[in-house]
Structure formats: C-alpha cells, structure tokens
Design a protein around this nucleic acid. Structure first.
Lengths: 219, 219
DNA sequence: ACTTTACTAGCCGATCGGTCTAGAAAATAG
DNA sequence: CTATTTTCTAGACCGATCGGCTAGTAAAGT
C-alpha cells in the first residue's frame, strides 16, 4: 500500500499513542474520572484513587495532565460532550412526537441513575455545588455547559411548538432554563434518597406545565 | 442575694461554661461551621479552618464534638432548626395573603444570598450532593430535614387553599415536594452564576403554576 | 492542699497534590 | 545492526495538611 494518506511528515522519535482510543491511558483516566467524580465530587477524590481505578501509574497522570485542576476542566469537556450527544439522541429523534422524546429522555436518565444504584449524579451539578473550593476557571465552563444544554432543550421545545404540542406563545428559552434549574435539583435529590421519585415528580409536573391546554385537536 | 435560683446542686470540679450562650465555644463553632460549610461543603473544609474562624483553640474541638462527622450532624440539626424558624416566620405571617407570604420568603432568600455575594448556598443541599463521601448516618437526617420543610410548605399551601388563592383540588403535599426539589436546584444554580436570576426564574414559574386560574374573583 | 472536672497545646500517622529521576518502548537515521 | 530521539511508564519521594489523640494546665469545690 503506497501510503494512501497524504504525506506524513513523521517526526523522529516514538510516535504518540492515539489517546482517543478507548483503551489509551488518557481516555481511561477521563472515563474513570467521570465515573468517580459523578459519585464523589472533585475535592473529596484524590488523583491516586482515579489512577488506581484506571490502572494507570502515578507518573503518567502528570504526563497527560498539568494538574488535578486541568484534569477537572478536561473532565467537564468530556462530560459535556457526552451529555450533549445524549440530549440530541433523544430530542432529535424524528420517530417520536416531541413530548414523547422528552419522556424518553427522562426515562433514560432514570434508568441511568438506577443502573448505578442512584449513587452517581450529574458531574456539572456536582462541580457547581463545589465552586466554593474550586478554581475560578471552573465557573465559566460550568455555566457554559448549562447554557449549551438549555439551548439544545429550547431548540427542541420550539420543535414541539411546530407540531402544536406546545403552546405557540410559550417562551422556550425561559422554559428550558426553568427545566434545567429544577432538573439538577431533582438529580441531587434522587441521589440523596437513592430513588427515582424526585426525577419523576419534577418531570411529570414540568410536562403538565408545558402542555398546551387550550389546544383542541391532538392525536 | 440569697440565691434567687432554685437550689443549685453544684457538681464538684470546674463548672461547665454555658454552651447555649452565643459566645460559648460550642455555639461559636456551630455558627461558624454553618457559615463556612454552606460556602465550601463538608469534606473540603478542615476542622482547623473552622476553629480559626471561631477563635476556638485547636485542642478544644474534640472536647465539644466526638468527631468531625458528629460535628457535621450537629450542624445539620442547627441549620434545620434555624431554617424551620425562618420558614414559619414567613409562611405563618397572618398580616399577609398566603401567596404574598410565599413571595416574601423568596425575596428573603434572595436577599440572604445576595448579602454574601451568592457564595453561600443551602447546607442541606450541599451535604446532599456530598453524600457519596459522607457517612451513611447523614442520609436519614438530610432526608428528614427536607421532609420537615416540605411539610411546613404543604401546611402553608393548604392555608392558601382556604383563602382560595390556590385551587382547592391541588395536591399540596405533591406541590411542596416539587417546590423543594426545584428550589434546591435554583439555589445551586444561583451560587454557580453568582446572581439571583435562577431563584426568580424558578419561583416565578412555580407561583404561576399554583395560581388558581379558574378562580373568578380575587383582588 | 487536694480532688474533680473543664479545657487545650502540641503532636501523630495517614494522605494529599505534585515533583523527580530512571529507564523501557517505539520510532527514525545512519 | 547501533545510535538517537521522543513518548510513555514507573514509583520513590516531598512538604503541606488532614482528622484525631494525649498529656497536661486551669478553675472550680471540699
């Protein structure tokens, strides 16, 4: 094979491992980091616990990350990307009516928490609660993540308006913000009580709230 | 003065300082503990920081409390009592119409957070988020505190039903639970963004939600 | 003085985030 | 092949700080 790839200007020494591979040390650290931090938060967890869980030696941690703080920021990005994909998967599912897509999302979140015995919460919510002892650089990233999720949710709500499932005069931006403010509270509470009730309690009322009651028809 | 107090059966040794006095070491530790932990959480704060803030010598901490965990439990009780008084003050204010009492509570909470630059949140919410690294004994106490707050809120909502401001068929227990699930999310978010908007965003929609729209009269 | 109880300075082992050095591994250059 | 360059692994080690302990002092009664 004559190098189908465009001219590879290979540097001299040992080539870098592809750290996007799921078994690469950096990727393993990020994955285990999300798992552990969604359960225990940032400040209460030492890097060595993550190292041990990921099967990566200590010397490697500070090769891949400048500091624990830098690792935390990378985790936020990782989690935000993972969750944005999840949101889109449900909210943009063309096989389902808009409000059913919303129910699907809630059911998936419930199942996700149930799978881990309600011990894991939302990384962004966890770190938000810890802002008092986190570097200032975390704040902007965390708020940006919420803004992104709210934007995706607002976009979805506008789609629901088009099908008529949601009242045309509803403020979708505002509703999306309301949802995420309360939903994080529901996740926190579900983690505390170790049961799905708070998720359902919040989601059900939210759904009832956004239903267009003035609508005549409907499927 | 002939001992106006009833017979004091004085024990032998050095008399105990009255720890209910607000300047007593134990009381100061509890007060400063609430202040610091509402801002920074439990696990990220060392006892020495609290000791220093309270002006209590290092060695004294384990005289007044068996452990840091026991101190944490005492803080929950302290905070729960303080907050229950606050709830009653607003919710049982007979000089105001029920829904105005609710607005007063929200305004007070907003002012309270503003006073400390939105750096302090809710102790119960903070510890709830930290349950992953807290002793199991914390869980029951924290859920019990939420139950207590919800009960007081539900009682208030029933009062609102009697004046007709709230629809008679509303499920007050359910509404109170919904409120506290979401409100904790709002406090968390206000702390993250350092602004009151999330509090208002949640409270306004909640108020709109519980208004009895079918009602004819009213002022 | 002596006992009893209330309180506290100082220290302890463990663990924290982070650094350092040594070298193994994987590529190219000659 | 050997030499060189660079990537990555490996873990001992460091000063700081953690929660908790203990030996002792302070302040009262008897």
């Amino acid at each position: 094979m004559e190098s189908t790839a465009a001219a590879s200007p290979r540097r001299r020494g040992r080539p870098r491992k592809d750290q996007t591979q799921p078994d690469a040390p950096r990727a393993r650290l990020l994955r285990k980091g999300v798992e552990i931090l969604t359960e225990k938060g940032f400040s209460a967890v030492g890097v060595e616990e993550i190292l041990a869980a990921a099967g990566v030696p200590k010397g490697s941690f500070y090769y891949y990350f400048d500091s624990k703080d830098a690792f935390g920021l990378a985790l936020i990005d990782e989690y935000a990307a993972y969750f944005a994909r999840k949101l889109d998967r449900w909210f943009e599912n063309q096989d389902r009516a808009p409000l059913d897509r919303f129910r699907d999302f809630v059911a998936d979140a419930r199942a996700g928490m149930e799978r881990f015995g309600f011990r894991r919460g939302c990384l962004v919510g966890n770190l938000g609660q810890e802002m008092g002892v986190l570097p200032a650089s975390f704040r902007d990233r965390l708020t940006a993540v919420f803004e992104d999720w709210e934007e995706r949710t607002a976009r979805f709500l506008r789609a629901a308006q088009e099908t008529g499932e949601l009242a045309a005069d509803a403020d979708c931006t505002d509703l999306a913000r309301f949802f995420w403010i309360g939903w994080e509270g529901a996740v926190l509470r579900a983690k505390l009580e170790r049961r799905p009730d708070p998720l359902d309690a919040f989601a059900d009322r939210f759904l009832a709230m956004i239903q267009d009651k003035s609508r005549k028809g409907g499927r």
